[in-house]
């Protein structure tokens, strides 16, 4: 059944979501577009964009994917699958974990995970560009966004709104 499949796929992903849901974009794409053919590249890009423009944690992109695949049940299944396993683990482990603070293996994992998470975020950005098949105008926007985001303190919401308006004009 598709809802169960959706739940299991996303629950598995939640255990490797170092760097949050954003880091999962490439793998979600692989699962829902390439493996299961639940949607095409364009729809995946659109859902990602909607999640960007909406309030709330980035993880809600999985809600949209779930909705598209299996309606309300899919939205709930995907969201719960992504959030519940680690929440339960943290609930059970937090007290013990705090006692390990500063242990060598804990520091080692923290140090070791960081470069992997960066790679995942970078892959996520690359994947969106590929899936959306950006032309030169879109790449111009990407480049301008990178510059503004790194050089100024402008709130990202302004950039997102601006991107939407430029896109509305049909240039991209």
């Amino acid at each position: 059944m598709i809802v169960v499949q959706l739940f299991l796929e996303f629950a598995l992903l939640s255990f490797v979501a170092f760097g949050g849901a954003t880091a999962l974009l490439p793998e979600m794409h692989r699962v829902v577009v390439d493996n299961h053919h639940w949607m095409n590249d364009a729809t995946f890009t659109h859902l990602y964009a909607i999640a960007q423009g909406a309030p709330g944690p980035n993880v809600l992109v999985v809600t949209l994917i779930g909705w598209h695949v299996a309606g309300l049940a899919g939205a709930l299944a995907a969201t719960v699958a992504m959030c519940l396993p680690m929440s339960v683990a943290i609930y059970l482990l937090i007290d013990r974990w705090e006692g390990f603070a500063g242990a060598r293996w804990q520091k080692a994992i923290s140090l070791g995970v960081a470069p992997l998470a960066v790679g995942l975020i970078f892959s996520g950005a690359t994947l969106i560009a590929q899936a959306a098949a950006f032309g030169w105008a879109a790449w111009l926007i990407v480049a301008a966004t990178v510059l503004v985001a790194l050089k100024t303190k402008l709130h990202p919401l302004w950039l997102i709104a601006l991107g939407g308006v430029v896109g509305l004009s049909g240039w991209i």
């Binding site: 966004t145 985001a149 308006v165």
Partner: peptide, 20 residues
């Protein structure tokens, strides 16, 4: 669709900036 592509382009830029 154009609007969403525009937002996706900005989102992509924000991801590259964050990765950097």
């Amino acid at each position: 669709q154009g609007m969403l592509r525009g937002i996706a382009a900005v989102g992509c830029g924000l991801l590259f900036a964050m990765a950097w």
